[in-house]
Simulated assay, not measured.
Amino acid sequence: MHNQDRTVLTQNGDIIIEQCSCCDNIVFIYRNILLKFTPEVFQDFTTSFRKLNFERRSYVFEDGSEKMLVNTPQKEIQLCFTKGEFKQLCQALQEATLMLEVHEILCP
Rank of each mutant, 00 (worst) to 15 (best):
L79E: 12
T82E: 07
K75L: 13
L52K: 08
E76N: 13
S48L: 07
P39A: 03
E66I: 14
Q74Y: 13
F37K: 01
F81Y: 11
R50W: 02
S65R: 05
V60W: 06
P73G: 12
F54M: 09
S65A: 04
C80T: 05
N32F: 14
K67V: 10
L79I: 11
Q74C: 12
R31K: 08
E66S: 15
P73H: 11
S65C: 02
V60A: 05
R31P: 01
F42V: 01
T46Y: 01
E76K: 10
N71I: 08
D44R: 08
F61T: 15
N32H: 12
E76F: 08
V27R: 14
I29D: 09
V41K: 02
E40D: 10
K51R: 14
F45V: 07
N71P: 10
R56I: 13
M68I: 15
R50L: 04
F42Q: 01
Q78A: 08
Y59W: 11
F37G: 02
F81V: 04
R57I: 06
N53Q: 13
T82L: 05
F45Y: 15
V70W: 07
I77Y: 14
T82A: 04
F49G: 00
I26Q: 02
R56A: 15
I26P: 02
E55P: 01
P39Y: 04
E76V: 09
V41G: 02
V60T: 15
E40F: 02
V27G: 12
I29E: 09
N53L: 13
N71W: 08
C80E: 10
V41W: 03
M68G: 10
R31L: 04
V41R: 03
L34C: 12
E76D: 12
V41S: 09
D44L: 13
I77V: 15
R56P: 08
V60K: 07
F61P: 11
F28T: 01
V70T: 04
R50F: 02
D63G: 02
F28K: 00
T46I: 01
D44C: 12
I29W: 08
V60M: 05
F37V: 00
G64A: 06
S65I: 01
S58K: 14
V70F: 09
T82N: 04
F42P: 00
L52Y: 03
C80M: 07
N32P: 10
N32T: 14
I33P: 03
I33N: 11
L34T: 14
K75G: 07
Y30E: 11
Q43S: 01
I77Q: 13
S58T: 09
F37Q: 02
